[in-house]
């Protein structure tokens, strides 16, 4: 099952990239994520590993994930090593007017569980989709507020 959402943010692509690839900031805007702990020596980049948890229904699912794509400043993708089988991807593209089109995708599989797995996958989809949409909205507020604050600092420096 794949869920995703996209939005356009009024910020340069590099600024958005800096935020979505920084493990320290994940808990600040990702809805539903309750843990995003660095397990590798390098905090980010290809091969970085995190222990993550994501609240869906009555459980926090997740496990060990590894960054498998780090294509600056466009694509950041991870895949699960243990725990729930899933992949996640931030897809950033420049948009007209110095803005950035941001897409977050989560794809998950409930493995080897027959009918209950099939049903669980579909029951969970709207919950995951709601978290994805809320995450994008929160990321948008965070990014755009930082742009406003930076602009205000520049104005203050000029004045």
């Amino acid at each position: 099952m794949r869920v995703g959402a996209d939005t356009v943010l009024a910020a340069p692509i590099e600024d958005v990239w800096a935020i979505v690839t920084d493990p320290e900031r994940v808990l600040g805007y990702m809805s539903g994520i309750t843990r995003w702990e660095v397990l590798s020596d390098r905090p980010t980049g290809l091969g970085a590993r995190y222990r993550m948890l994501f609240r869906v229904g009555a459980a926090e699912v997740g496990g060990l994930v590894e960054v498998v794509e780090f294509d600056e400043p466009c694509d950041f993708a991870w895949t699960s090593v243990t725990g729930l089988d899933h992949r996640g991807r931030w897809r950033l593209r420049t948009a007209p007017g110095g803005r950035t089109r941001v897409e977050l995708r989560l794809a998950y599989v409930v493995a080897g569980a027959g009918l209950s797995g099939w049903v669980a996958e579909r029951i969970a989809a709207p919950m995951v989709a709601a978290h994805v949409r809320r995450s994008l909205a929160q990321l948008g507020r965070l990014v755009e507020h930082e742009q406003l604050r930076a602009a205000a600092r520049r104005r203050a420096a000029r004045a």
Binding site: A58, A59, A113, V119, A120, I123
Partner: peptide, 18 residues
């Protein structure tokens, strides 16, 4: 393999919160 079934019960029937 059984977790999805129990997750369904836990989430939908008991609205579990841990």
């Amino acid at each position: 393999e059984q977790l999805p079934l129990f997750w369904l019960f836990s989430s939908l029937w008991f609205r579990g919160e841990v």
